[in-house]
């Protein structure tokens, strides 16, 4: 079955970090305050960050 993983549109990310707090697996960081980075190995594609992102620039992408 196709897996879904969260993906950030880094160009539009404002690096607010709202996504960090809602991620149940602590897979999101904002290194150097530039944009959010999601560890796709750990992401379970729950979509919580997608809902939370105030700029709506995180989406779920099919990976396989």
């Amino acid at each position: 079955m196709a897996k879904k993983k969260a993906a950030v549109s880094i160009r539009e990310c404002v690096a607010c970090g709202c996504c960090i707090k809602v991620c149940p697996r602590n897979t999101i960081t904002v290194p150097n305050g530039i944009h959010a980075v999601i560890n796709r190995e750990l992401c379970i594609g729950c979509g919580k960050c997608v809902k939370e992102c105030p700029a709506s620039i995180i989406s779920l992408e099919v990976t396989e």
């Binding site: 404002v14 150097n32 530039i34 105030p54 700029a55």
Partner: peptide, 24 residues
């Protein structure tokens, strides 16, 4: 919109992101 929509256009957030980008 969403609860923390202010964060999208917060001048302090924009400014600190610019500083971080410049520093990087």
């Amino acid at each position: 919109f969403k609860p923390r929509s202010w964060c999208v256009y917060c001048p302090m957030g924009t400014m600190t992101q610019l500083i971080c980008k410049a520093k990087n």
